[in-house]
Every structure is written in structure tokens, then in C-alpha cells.
Design a protein around this nucleic acid. Structure first.
Lengths: 135, 135, 135, 135
DNA sequence: TTTT
DNA sequence: TTTT
């Protein structure tokens, strides 16, 4: 179990890139407000989000800076080598599912909100008919 | 671990009542859309939500039919006796935290959304200062 | 967003049945302890769980009464007609993912625990290689 | 909403420290297995966990390297200055609730598992009596 | 017996 | 720089 659920707004437009093998990735920071101790302390954590494949394309086509979304995903830690040869760690949330909540949504316009779930990451997408239940 | 996270809209205005000992409760159904198998099957589950005390009052004062909210809570099963003496079960989500997401919010108007957390149910409310961290 | 995460133990062996079209379902009650107000009040909620298809078969083959598991799923409300013609509602958790945590696990024996995710319900199953990341 | 739920094992014993003002902190890495694409790829993410106050002390007293736990918390990003003056970011999960799942638990021995929730971070701790419900 |  |  490695589950993350975040609600926030894109701190900038998503960047869509492609791997050598042609997979799409979208990455952006999500500004998630901290609600501190009753006070009016209104800071945010800027959490790096990465989406892959179909979900990445949906991000690129539908989200802009300021979009309010819910992200379901998992925490993943990558490591890479510094220019100085030092090992560095990057913590990201790999998105499995994104729901569009608020306004500031680009190029999409249904009043009912939307829910997107990426190719390989897709889940819960089948709804089983009540009539078929054998009990 | 008994954790529920729902995003939906109030199917009707919340009903606020008081126990004999004076505790407030708010109850309402939350319409949570099912996103079925890629199709446009747009049904919803109408999930009974119960809030207590301070959180109940916040619901009564801020939510109306149609308000879009996120509910964090837990599943609880109550039982009671039928008029016919039969044991019946009621499944409800006891709200621990509610975030106001969308429009259709009564009597509140800040552009940043809001997060409410009830008296006895309150959690995560203390934010520890970074400067004090001893590592 | 309709997300449930539960940790508990099977109150009885799972019952596996098949729909007319041949889909497997497993159903069982999960006993989830309530940890009340610091006291030693040790009641549990018995929450009905339903799994479908491949996940249902994994449940039937691996779980027994007493097995400790984590269930990730969603709340679903079904309705049916009473013998008396009255409309009744049943609330169930449709499992999307199950992790085997503790002991009392039937017919499986790897010391590392296990994670199962059902056919149509499968998700998050692809892990993208770090080397391929284009940033 | 900034919610994380992790199940894993402590990669080492927790380190308990105190701030200048006397607050306890416990920190450790949690090894959370990745279950990749059906294959037997058995890597893990080593996720830094921080607990505060009462919850920190419970960690120090009850957990050891190898303990299997469930952590509920939130993602938090701290920044500090390098020795070279460069701004560095640290991503941690601030624990709000910890449940002891498996074996390898130090100094505690009840067969039912345990659930701990820290002082300022405590939540969901009140269970409201069914009898009092006014509906 | 319901939301958008 | 790690758990089982």
C-alpha cells in the first residue's frame, strides 16, 4: 500500500515530454495548502506530480496553471547523480488517477466535472451491473 | 484503519439535530458519481454522511443542496429494531474532515476554499515549524 | 473520488459464486476494529466486501476466516425489493485491491506478503523504469 | 487534502530526538515494496517518516527495524541550505496515525495489534454512542 | 429516492 | 543506501 490523495492547484502549466520509446509523461508541481493549527497560516507544499501515457496526454490537453484537481497516486523516489557525482534523491507522486474539480480548466467544458485515469494506470473502471449479482 | 474519502455533491440540505446531551449532528446524502467503464453511464451512489459537534455546525452553516465537498471519514454500521422487531443495519460515513471544493456554498465566500475539521474529530491541525526540526 | 481503505480480519471464509455470464464474485464480512476514545472499547464494524473476477478467485484461494488483509475499494449501494415489496438498500465495499498482511492465510506461503489486484479492477500495476525518464 | 497511506517495514530503528522546546520527534525510513507489473521485481521505496510528540514516543518505544506498520500522514516539503549555500528540498511524510500490523514489534505483546495516534495529531478518537443518535 |  |  502506497497511496497518496492530494487536492490542490497546478503551480504551472504541465510539461509534456516523451521517452525514447515514445511514452508520454506530464510533470507539474501541485500547490497543496497547509491548514495550520486554526491560525491563518496559508502556506502550501509544492508537490511534484508525474503522469504517464494516456493520463499524461489528458493532463497536457486539459490542465493549466491554476487548475484545481484531485490526484490519486503513489510516492516514488528516484535517484540520480549530481554534476559533482553525488547521489541525489527526488521524491515524486506518480499519478494513477486525476479528477478535475474546479474552474481554470483548459479546453474542456462539461459542467459535470471529469475523471481521468491513464492507460496502464487505469483502475476501477469497470462497473458491474447490479442485476447480475448472484446473492 | 477504516478510512473513506469521497468527493460529491449534497443531494439535499443537511439536517442538523441535537442529542439529548446536546451534541449536534448533521446528516445528509452525498451524491458520488460512478464513472463506469469509459461509457457515459452517469449514475451516482447516494451515501449517507453524518457529522458531529463542531463539524456538524459547520455543515449546517455552510452547506446546501448541490454543494461540492470532499469528505474524509470512516464507515460505521448501526443497527436498530424495525417496527416489526426485525434487526436492520444502517451503513453511514462518519465525517472526520470536510473540504469545501466548489460553488453552491452557502454563506461563505473566500476564493481559496476552506477546510473544516470537527472538535473531537479534529486531526492534523498542528503544523510544526520547520526551524525547530532537530535533524 | 470514492475511495475506501480498510484493515481488518475476515469474519468468515469468503463465499465464491458465479454470475450467469460466468464472472466470479467473492463476498465476505471484514471485521474492522473501532478504536474508541482512548478507552479499551474493542468493538468492530463488520463491513461487507465484494470482489469480482480474478480478484474474487484470489480471495477464494487465499483467504480464510481470520485472515488479516488491507482492502482498497469503493462504497457501492445496491437496492432490491423485499419479500414484502419494500425497497431495501445494501451498502458494500467493492474491492479494487487486496493486500495480505498477517497470518491465517490459506494456501499461500511466501514470507514477503502479497498484493492482489483483480482483472478489470487492476491498477497501478505498471512500474515505469527510472532510466527512461526524460527529465 | 494531503493524505498518505503507506504499509511497509522500518528500514532501521527509529531515531528519537527533541527540539529545543522539548517536543519529541521520531524519524525513520519506511521500506514500501513496489509490486511491478505482475513480474517479480521486488524493489522498495524508502520513504522518510517523521512523527511528533506522543506519537514519536510511541514509535521510539514500540518499533524496531523490520516492524511492519501502516502510516497515515501527509506529505511535507522542507527546505534547507546546503553547506555550499544551495537550497535543498527534503520530502517527508509527517505521520498522523500509525497502526502496528505485523511481527517484529518491540516491547509490546497483544495479539490484537494496536493503533496509535499522536497528541496534537490525534483524530477520529471519539466514538459516538449509537444510542444517542437523534434519527 | 436524491447532486451537477 | 536501508525492510521482509
Amino acid at each position: 500500500m502506497n497511496k497518496v490523495i492530494l487536492v490542490g492547484r497546478l503551480a504551472r502549466d504541465p510539461e509534456v515530454r516523451y521517452t525514447q520509446s515514445g511514452k508520454a509523461t506530464a510533470s507539474f508541481a501541485l500547490a497543496v495548502n497547509r491548514f495550520g493549527g486554526g491560525g491563518q497560516n496559508n502556506t502550501a507544499d509544492f508537490i511534484p506530480i508525474v503522469a504517464w501515457e494516456k493520463l499524461a496526454e489528458i493532463c497536457g490537453n486539459n490542465l493549466i496553471k491554476g487548475s484545481q484537481i484531485l490526484v490519486e497516486g503513489r510516492i516514488q523516489i528516484r535517484n540520480y547523480e549530481d554534476k559533482t557525482g553525488q547521489k541525489r534523491y527526488v521524491t515524486e507522486v506518480i499519478a494513477q488517477n486525476i479528477e478535475f474539480l474546479g474552474s481554470k480548466q483548459a479546453r474542456t467544458e462539461d459542467g459535470y466535472g471529469a475523471s481521468a485515469t491513464g492507460g496502464a494506470n487505469s483502475f476501477g473502471s469497470e462497473v458491474f451491473p447490479d442485476e447480475e449479482i448472484p446473492f
